[in-house]
């Protein structure tokens, strides 16, 4: 148990260093990319290069990703300062959220469905001949 806790602290520290590096890179090159996205890309690159392995972060990433929703609660609580906005503009905000979500959902689904079916058929006929 204590060992696992120590591992968690150490691995989280390593993830935190990558996050910090991501922020530094974004700031240094004045990129409009958020530091956390940069950190994510950095870790992906490190994993692909084989310099680090998934197992090196297993304890911390398992726990943090399982409970990542927790962190959004304190952020979303800030919403209480915006109650008037939602009350006044509920119609347009609801439309904006729902219509754009449906449009994007169908756009992705129809394109992928058509391409994937064609690809599957292609693979099938290729394996038959």
């Amino acid at each position: 148990m204590l060992w696992k806790l120590l591992l968690f602290v150490f691995q989280t520290g390593c993830l935190w260093v990558i996050y910090w590096l991501g922020n530094q890179i974004s700031a240094y090159f004045e990129l409009p990319i958020p530091g956390n996205v940069m950190g994510m890309v950095l870790l992906f690159g490190l994993l692909c290069s084989g310099l680090v392995k998934v197992e090196h972060f297993a304890v911390a990433s398992g726990f943090l990703l399982k409970h990542i929703s927790f962190f959004f609660i304190p952020i979303a609580v800030g919403l209480m300062n915006w109650a008037a906005l939602f009350y006044q503009h509920s119609l347009w905000l609801t439309l904006a959220i729902i219509v754009s979500a449906i449009a994007a959902l169908y756009a992705v689904a129809f394109v992928v469905e058509a391409v994937s079916r064609r690809k599957d058929q292609w693979n099938k006929s290729a394996s038959q001949s």
């Binding site: 989280t12 993830l15 935190w16 990558i18 996050y19 910090w20 991501g22 530091g35 956390n36 950190g39 994510m40 890309v41 950095l42 870790l43 992906f44 994993l47 692909c48 998934v54 972060f57 911390a60 990433s61 943090l64 990703l65 990542i68 962190f71 304190p74 952020i75």
Partner: peptide, 16 residues
């Protein structure tokens, strides 16, 4: 939210 940064970076793992 102190640990949100490292948690977001860890999203690279499912991607990998």
């Amino acid at each position: 939210t102190f640990l949100l940064g490292p948690a977001t970076v860890a999203l690279a793992i499912p991607l990998y």
